[in-house]
Simulated assay, not measured.
Amino acid sequence: MIRIATPDDVPVIHTLIRELAEYEKALEEARATPEQLHEALFGENPAAYAHIAQDDATGEPVGFSVWFLNFSTWRGVHGIYLEDLYVRPSARGGGHGRALLTELARICVDRGYQRLEWSVLNWNRPAIGFYESLGARPQDEWTVYRLTDEALESLGKRG
């Protein structure tokens, strides 16, 4: 079962984000606080949205997605950028990841969005295989660049 996250889900979303960061071998980079997540997802001007995957039998949260709108200047319409998708190892293979992506694809179709995009670590072969089984294809002509921490500060302080 997939449902839209509520403010009461912030603690579990925070926990799942930390589990994902640990899986991706980058726990020290996961610095978001529950308060920041609450503001981003449910504040006056939400910057992102979230869905929860629940175990069908118990109702226990077993996964989540966090996403936000992007915009294609070439297509002239919004799309969805999937920031995080995670299903706990104990629940993998149960259709939760597919259901989360299906829900986001449904939102795209219903709203006329023409892209659903995300990034995946090159070493995460199980995820890559799963995504490709759904028809997703890598955009290998593009390289993601990122400014953070000192580099971002330095550039941002230039006149």
Rank of each mutant, 00 (worst) to 15 (best):
M1N: 05
I2N: 04
I2A: 11
R3Q: 15
R3D: 15
P7S: 15
P7E: 15
D8C: 13
D8Y: 12
D9N: 07
P11D: 14
P11Q: 12
P11K: 09
V12H: 04
V12Q: 10
R18V: 01
E19Y: 08
E19D: 15
L20G: 05
L20C: 04
A21K: 04
E22Y: 08
Y23T: 05
K25Q: 08
E29I: 00
E29F: 13
A30Y: 01
R31P: 00
R31M: 09
A32V: 03
T33C: 06
P34L: 10
E35R: 06
E35M: 10
H38K: 07
H38V: 03
H38W: 03
E39W: 07
L41R: 11
L41H: 13
F42A: 10
F42H: 11
F42Y: 06
E44D: 14
P46V: 12
A47V: 04
A47P: 01
A48C: 14
Y49I: 09
Y49N: 15
A53V: 13
D55I: 00
D56F: 01
T58K: 03
T58L: 09
T58V: 03
G59F: 07
E60R: 14
G63T: 07
F64Q: 09
L69V: 06
L69Q: 14
N70Q: 09
F71E: 11
F71P: 01
T73G: 08
T73I: 10
T73L: 12
T73P: 00
W74V: 04
R75H: 14
R75K: 14
G76P: 01
V77C: 14
H78C: 15
Y81K: 03
L82K: 01
L82S: 07
E83C: 02
D84N: 10
V87E: 01
R88Q: 13
R88V: 14
S90I: 03
S90V: 08
R92C: 12
G93D: 12
G94C: 01
G95H: 02
G95C: 03
G95P: 00
G95M: 02
R98T: 10
R98G: 06
A99T: 01
L100H: 00
L100Q: 02
L100C: 03
T102C: 01
L104F: 06
A105H: 06
A105R: 08
C108A: 09
C108E: 02
R111S: 10
G112K: 10
Q114W: 06
L116Y: 11
S119P: 00
L121E: 14
N122V: 04
N124L: 05
A127Q: 09
A127M: 09
I128P: 13
F130D: 04
F130L: 07
F130A: 06
E132H: 02
E132C: 03
S133Q: 08
S133G: 07
A136E: 05
Q139Y: 05
D140L: 09
E141F: 11
W142Y: 15
T143Q: 07
V144H: 12
D149W: 04
D149M: 06
A151K: 02
E153M: 02
G156E: 03
K157C: 10
R158S: 08
